[in-house]
Design a protein around this nucleic acid. Structure first.
Lengths: 246, 246
DNA sequence: TTATTGTCCGTACACCGTACGGAAAGAGGT
DNA sequence: ACCTCTTTCCGTACGGTGTACGGACAATAA
């Protein structure tokens, strides 16, 4: 089945047909995939596990979904469809900040979303609706259309990397704590005269590493970065007007 | 072998030992990995292929490298070590722009680098040297150390996503051109009343899509985004001074 | 009832990363 | 020259992955 038709499956529920009736819906498969990814992480999502989770043979999934990549696309769009929106309000700055917050919440609820690589855009109702809403935040800015898209993409890319950092900071429960790792590997590093040869890196890296490790500071780093972005987008600065495209 | 010791293998070339002499060096393995990734993409790098490329059995690799993840770390650090630097010059803005350029060049030469996920930082000579150099660009800014790190990370994350966009735009030679895809899937989309239900998304998306598709405009989008970032980092703006950390 | 049309899914294949252990090769001591 | 010790090479095997194929099965239409 074509990906687009599957993404918009709610638009045209297909009429009852002859033949054995399906025991599963596409939504059930997608939801199982999302649950699996939430629980075990993107890396450990396998069709076999999803099938087992549904009490069904592996190949049954292929009756509802073309392949694993398509399932991932559907999962991504579903998550975006499930986002909860309050109406955007305030200045463009407030609104863009709100958009960033929503995205950070999304990526906190489903950390694997920050690791999905969708080669082509997922043109489903969730993605399109999200895009529509978020464009509303940059619409007031005096930019060309491509620049609006780019500005939004800039914020979203930033939130994505922020979410990854926060996730890493939160990963004390990993199989090996950073302290253990440092004890094992860091000793060798210290013996190499790093501090003399890379003074800036040593000084800043240590401070930044310590700060990023505390989840609170990871959040403040996020706030800082977002502030930088929004300041840069502000049109009030004289003598320059962001511009892009032909 | 510990990853750190392997990353810094040039520091202490180990003395000749009894026993069969190795037919391969770590560098040979790393280089083969890089070539393989350059040619076929990150997704298709397998130890079997790397081994075949070297005319050697698969398990031979494990005599030089602990596992695939470690090999990837070594590849990443090697690429960073091989970057060509001209001395940084000019204002902090010029210098940070120069850093962004170098990184874009790096990611263009090795597109797979933009897709590598290194859980933990790779503390090798390439990475550390690159970090040291790039900190030199933000050093003049009136920021705390963690904020300097964050500012740099912001620029690098942006370049990374830019590189991905450029790569996608350049991917005409893919197994299916965007045009073919659109012909196959886009027709169904058009029949759903998208334009009325998502007016902003349709308008902006079309303009942005067209612009991003032309490689020239993808570059100008990059320039726009970078300008935004640098404007945001500029300390001259009155009434606000970027700040982060405790 | 029978034919038709769809779903379910066991089996199989190619590929992956990698644990194990024996074969092969070079160096040092005698 | 030989034996021994150390190290590297690598064939085999195991458990995992995505997915192609085709038969068993169920439900509707005739």
């Amino acid at each position: 089945m074509g990906t687009v038709r599957l993404l918009w499956r709610r638009e045209r529920p297909l009429p009852p047909r002859p033949g054995r009736r399906p025991t599963l819906t596409v939504d059930a498969v997608v939801d199982a995939g999302i649950r699996e990814a939430d629980d075990r992480g993107l890396h450990d999502v396998s069709l076999r596990r999803v099938a087992e989770h549904l009490g069904v043979g592996v190949m049954t999934l292929y009756g509802h979904v073309a392949n694993k990549a398509q399932l991932l696309d559907l999962m991504v769009d579903q998550c975006r469809l499930d986002m909860e929106w309050a109406p955007l309000s305030g200045s463009w700055r407030d609104r863009l900040g709100q958009v960033a917050d929503e995205n950070l919440t999304l990526l906190t609820r489903h950390p694997w979303l920050a690791h999905v690589e969708t080669e082509r855009a997922v043109l489903g109702p969730g993605t399109l609706g999200k895009y529509e809403r978020e464009l509303g935040a940059v619409e007031p800015l005096p930019l060309t259309d491509p620049a609006k898209d780019q500005a939004l993409a800039l914020v979203l890319a930033f939130v994505r990397s922020s979410a990854r950092a926060l996730e890493a900071a939160r990963a004390e429960r990993s199989e090996e704590t950073p302290e253990q790792w440092w004890l094992r590997e860091g000793a060798e590093l210290a013996a190499l005269g790093i501090e003399e040869r890379f003074p800036l890196a040593s000084r800043v890296g240590q401070a930044a590493g310590a700060a990023t490790h505390a989840a609170a500071d990871a959040r403040s780093a996020h706030a800082f970065g977002l502030g930088v972005l929004l300041d840069g987008l502000a049109p009030a600065r004289p003598g320059r007007r962001p511009r892009v495209g032909g």
